[in-house]
Design a binder for these strands. Sequence first.
DNA 1: GTAACGTCAACAAC
DNA 2: CGTTGTTGACGTTA
Length: 682
Amino acid sequence: MERNSNFSPSSSQEGLDAKPLRSLTPMFPAPFGFNAYTQSATPPFVCVSPFAQFPGNPSFQPLAAGVLNSNGVTFAGVSDSNGPINATPISAAYRANVHSLDDEDEEEEEEEEEDEPVFTRKSSKSGRKIKRSHLGGSDGLDGTKIKRVKPVRKIFDKSLLLLPSSSNHPRETVEMVLSTFDALRRRLLQLDELEDINRRPDLRAGAIMMTNEFRANMGKRIGSIPGVEIGDIFYFRIEMCVVGLHAPSMAGIDYMTARFDHQEEPVAVCIVSSGGYENADDDVDVLVYSGQGGNNRYEEKHDQKLERGNLALEKSTYRKNEIRVVRSAKDPNCQTGKIYIYDGLYKIQDAWKEKSKSGFNVFKYKLLREPGQRDGIAVWKMTQKWIENPSLRGRVILPDLSSGIENIPVCLVNEVDHEKGPSHFTYVTKVRYSKPISSMKPSQGCRCLSVCLPGDRNCSCAQVNGGDLPYSSLGLIASRRNMIYECSDSCQCSYNCRNRVTQKGIRLHFEVFRTRNRGWGLRSWDPIRAGSFICEYTGEVIDESKVDLDDDDDDYLFQTACPGEKTLRWNYGAELAEEPSGTFSTDTYNPLPIMVSARNMGNVARFMNHSCSPNVFWQPVQHDHSDDGHPHIMFFAMKHIPPMTELTYDYGVSGKERGSGGVSRRAKRCLCGSPACRGSFG
DNA sequence: GTAACGTCAACAAC
DNA sequence: CGTTGTTGACGTTA
C-alpha cells in the first residue's frame, strides 16, 4: 500500500510555512563529529536537517509511512477509509533554524560558569538542561526544598565520539547510539559500585548523551522510526529517548502538535504500555491503554483530565494516525524485571471513559495493530510458552542436542528444509586441552569471605582485573578487555561470588536452527541483555605450533583473528564517564596463540555464524588456571538481542588479508547481509 | 516504601 | 511578536 501517495507539493509547502509553536533554536553547528554526520543532508533518519531534501526527491525513501517535510520532520500522510489526512508536525520542529550550519566557531560560545570548553549548542531548548536554581514548590522561604543539581558533563574531545568509519545506515546509527549509551552506563555503574552507591547510571548516561546530542532521530514524527525495528528490546526508558522512539523519559504518552489541513492539533505518536492494564487474553493485536494522570503519589487521586497525552490520544482517535506501541514484559533473566519491546504501529479503534477501582475516571483507548507488520510481542509470547513447555515448540528434530549435559536443553529445529541435522560431532561443555590443566600455571586465589565486592582493595581478583570486578552484580560484563580473571577453586569466596559467571555454564534456552542459506545457526528463546554471558567456544584446543594443513578446511575452527571495529570498540563510550584527567585504557585486539577446533567435538558455539554486524563478541577468560596462552573463549552479547534473533559474531579478517604472520585460511564470501558487510571473512 | 532523577510542553516573562 | 526562562507532569529505577 502506498501510504504517501497523497503527498503533494502543497503539503510540503505547508510544511515550509508551518510556524513552530515554540521557540526555535539554532540547530547547528553540529558540535560533534557524530552529529555532523547524522545531520548531513542525505540520511533520512537524521533528526532535523534544514537542508533535508524535498519529499518529492525520489532518492529519498523513508522506511515507512513517514516523509520528511522541509523541517526534516516526518509525518504520515495517512489515508484510509475515513479519507486522507494531511498532517504536518509543528511543535516538533523545534530545531529547524538554520543559520549557523557552517559557523563552527560558535561551538564554544557557552560556558555555563564552567572552566571547561563546551561543545554543545546553546542549551536553550528547554532551558533546563543545566540548572542550578532552587527547585520545587518552594513555599520554603526557609529553604526547605533547595536542590543542587550537578551539571551534566559535556565532552571536549569530539574525536571520542567518532567511529573510524561510520555508516550512513539508520540501523547502524541507532545501534551505535545504543551501544555508546550502554558502554557509558556500564562504566558509570561500575564506578558507582566502587563506592557502593547508586546514582542512576541509566539517567546519567542518558543525560550525557542528550547534552551532547549524541542521539538518533531527534524531532518527533508519526510512524516508524528509522533504524528501530519491530521486536527491538530496551532495558531502560532512556534508551528509547536517545534513539527517538519515545521522547518522554517518564510519561507513557508521546505526542506532538501536527497540522491537519488548517487546524493544529496534538496527536499521539508513541505509547509505552507498562503492563498494568495489559489484556489478559492472548490477542497480540489488541491493546487497551489507560490515559495518564490521576494517580500522583503525592496528591489525592482524582479524575483524569482530557489534556496532554490524553487529549492527544483523543485527537488521534479521530485522526486515525499511526501510533507506535512499546509493550513491556517481565524479563525472566533479570530480577529487576521490566523490559520494553517495540511492537510496531497501531491505530486507535475506540476510546471511552470508565471508573477505576478507586472510583475515579480513567480514559481508555483500544488500539489495533496495523496489519502486515512482522511479529513483535507475538514472538515474545511464543518463546515464553516454549520456555515453560519445550514440547510446544514445533519442527523439533532433537529436543536436546547436548543429551542432557548442558544446564538447559539445546533444541534442534528445522523449519526450512529436510536436513535432518548437522553432521556428527560430540557435544562437550568444556574445552579439551592438549596438556593437562594441572601442568598449567595455577590461579592465584583471593581471600574474600563470602563474595568478592567492588572497591575491596584486598581482593586480589579485583586487582588482577585492573582494580574493577569485570562483571556487574547482575553478571553482565562491564567492558571488553584483553583478559578476564574469574575467581577459581583457589579462591575462598563462595560459588555465588559475582566474579564467577562463565564457569557456571549456559543460562539461555538455545535452539540450533536451519538457516535459509548459511547452514545451521544459533538463536535463543530468551531475550539477551547486552553484556550477558552466552556460551564458551568448546572443542579441542590446538597450539599454534601444531597446526597442520588439514585445518585449512576446518569450518569449525575458532581463532582469534582481528574482529571488526564494532567488536573492538564495544567499550566505546565508557571513556565519557571518566574525569578529564582520567586515563581509561581502551583495550584492543590482542592476538592469542590459541585455536579451538569444534569439528569433532564442541557445543552450541560451533553453530554461531559470522556477521559483519555481529550481536556477540568473544572474550578470553580464565577460571581454572592462569596460563594466559590458553584462555577460555567466552561469548558475550554485544547488544540487547530479542528472542529468536540469530546469534552471530565477527569471525575476523582472514589471515591472508591481514598479511600478518597469522595462519592463512581461505576467506569465505560473507552472507551476513549487513549494510556494513565487508564481503568476506575468515 | 521511597528518594532521586531527565525531558518535554506549556506557560511566564522579557 | 520573537525569544528565553521556569515549572509541573510524567513514571522509572534501585
